[in-house]
Structure formats: structure tokens, C-alpha cells
């Protein structure tokens, strides 16, 4: 099975706004503190974006738009990732893509 990777995706995201997904250490504290308990968010999602896996991000659109932007995850993130702003950037990217 082949996977299409977009080398330009990360640049598109950074052009929309500050996008610091690469700071994520994949520790999972965000997932543990999320009131929605969505296991996708945000650590795997940020990997998809950083790797340019556009299809995976598009397939995750419902999870991306269901994020509450409540910042419970950010309050606990040991790496200080701006998770909610990253989510907003991904929403904007999805709207641009006409997902």
C-alpha cells in the first residue's frame, strides 16, 4: 500500500499561522486530559500534518472540528505546544482544501 506525502503541507500550514506541531513529544498527556477523550487528538494528528499526510488529515476532519479549543490539553502539555492554535490552523487548511 502506498502513501502519498506532501512536502508542501507543513509550509501551507505555517503560512496560515503559527504551527508548532513539531514540538510535540508524543507523550499523550493531551489525550489523557481531553474532556472529549478523543484518542486521535492531537498527537497523531500533528504527526500526520508534520509528515504531510494530507489524506489522513482530511479523513480526520470530524475530529478536528469537534475539538472544543478549551485548552485543557495545553494547560498540561510539558512541551508547551500551542495545541488549540494548531487545531485552528488545521481547520482553516481544511476549509481552504474544500474537504
Amino acid at each position: 500500500m502506498s502513501t502519498l506525502v506532501s512536502s508542501g503541507m507543513i509550509h501551507q500550514l505555517e503560512a496560515i499561522g503559527p504551527f508548532d506541531a513539531e514540538a510535540c513529544m508524543n507523550c499523550g498527556v493531551c489525550t489523557a486530559t481531553c474532556p472529549l477523550g478523543v484518542d486521535l487528538l492531537p498527537r497523531r494528528l500533528f504527526r500526520y500534518a508534520a509528515l504531510g499526510l494530507e489524506d489522513r488529515v482530511i479523513q480526520s476532519s470530524q475530529a478536528i472540528f469537534s475539538c472544543l479549543l478549551c485548552r485543557a490539553c495545553e494547560a498540561s502539555c510539558p512541551a508547551g505546544v500551542h495545541i488549540t492554535e494548531n487545531m485552528r490552523v488545521l481547520r482553516h487548511w481544511l476549509l481552504q482544501e474544500g474537504f
Binding site: P35, L36, F65, S66, L68, L69, C70, A72, A75
Partner: peptide, 25 residues
């Protein structure tokens, strides 16, 4: 305080059922 729990409201315009479940908790 800083560790408050979301009321679910931000999800209401797109996912009302999710918002209702979270508000219930």
C-alpha cells in the same frame, strides 16, 4: 479555576450530541 472542564458548548454548532454529553458530565 485553571483546570476547569469545558461545558461542551463550543461543539454545539457542529456536534450537538457531543456537546450535550459533555455538559451532562
Amino acid at each position: 479555576g485553571q483546570w476547569t472542564w469545558c461545558c461542551g458548548g463550543p461543539a454545539e454548532s457542529l456536534f450537538p450530541a457531543t456537546a450535550a454529553a459533555l455538559a451532562g458530565k
